[in-house]
């Protein structure tokens, strides 16, 4: 349970960080921010990076600010930063709600939003938020800067479009309208544990009909994603019990569930059905 040896790099500027990462990435060098996922897998020796590029002292990465109508979340913004709706409006309320489901207080002190995205556990609440809200992710490397849409970013369990020499420097989220309704429910076997399934939905009610619906699932598949078929079903419909039941049945049917020894695929379908229903009821309340 002791991590393998590594060289600790402590850059203070982003330029220095990407330059070092470019040198060590071919040798499986990794970036460390909060380390709340990376250090455990290093303790298990599932990861043995010979170099860690520690970005905790890189200037400017702790920014959490609204810019050009989007919420910009820097690479060193910790989970805890979202506790008191640090971000404004419905997006802030959503992030604050999700934060309370991420592990426990001592993990939230250190872990970061962008780190969760870089690690990309299938059950990550932040990955679910990024998928549901179509986050734009900013990756820096010695080769330059690029923007990655969330829909292109997630590629598999713990597999993303982020390249080994790139640092996920910032995530940008849209500011949802103030009258956005939010439903979020997840199921895990123990408090703070990885969710076996989670559902996040947002929509507005315009003239009694559902408008701008977003519906995304996490934990149930290899990576979180929006389910366009459900969103189409919701758009313009009246928010009643029949619709919720129909959408929940459909969501459970169309997912491609993760399976493991303790969790058969059908169990995850049952969870998605139940959680979808509850998420809609929560949003509609």
């Amino acid at each position: 349970m002791k991590p393998a040896a590594f060289v600790h790099h402590r850059p203070t500027t982003l330029e220095e960080a990407v330059r070092i990462l470019a040198e060590v990435a071919p040798d499986d060098g990794r970036v460390i921010a909060g380390g709340q996922s990376l250090v455990p897998i290093m303790a298990y020796r599932m990861a043995r990076p010979p170099h860690l590029v520690d970005i905790n002292h890189v200037a400017g990465l702790d920014r959490l600010a609204v810019e050009n109508g989007r919420l910009a979340i820097g690479a060193r913004v910790r989970h805890m930063a979202f506790r008191d709706s640090a971000a404004p409006g419905a997006t802030g309320a959503l992030l604050s709600t999700l934060m309370r489901h991420i592990a426990h207080a001592p993990i939230r002190t250190r872990g970061t939003f962008c780190g969760s995205l870089a690690h990309s556990d299938p059950s990550s609440e932040w990955c679910l938020a990024a998928a549901a809200l179509d986050a734009v992710l900013i990756a820096h490397s010695a080769r330059g800067v690029r923007e990655i849409a969330a829909a292109d970013y997630f590629q598999g369990a713990m597999t993303t479009d982020l390249q080994p020499d790139e640092i996920l420097v910032e995530a940008r989220l849209p500011l949802l309208p103030d009258d956005t309704r939010i439903g979020f429910v997840e199921f895990s076997r123990r408090a703070g544990d990885y969710a076996l399934a989670s559902v996040l939905t947002t929509f507005r009610l315009v003239g009694g009909k559902i408008a701008e619906p977003r519906f995304a699932i996490g934990g149930a598949e290899a990576f979180p994603r929006r389910l366009a078929e459900i969103e189409t079903m919701l758009t313009g419909a009246a928010p009643d019990a029949d619709l919720w039941r129909e959408a929940a049945e459909r969501a459970a049917a169309i997912i491609d569930p993760l399976e493991d020894a303790a969790t058969p695929g059908d169990y995850r379908r049952d969870l998605v059905r139940a959680l979808t229903l509850r998420a809609f009821q929560q949003a509609n309340a």
Binding site: V39, T109, R110
Partner: peptide
């Protein structure tokens, strides 16, 4: 703030 001392390196 509370932290897990096993999830940080001394350095």
């Amino acid at each position: 703030a509370p932290i897990r001392a096993c999830l940080m390196f001394a350095v």
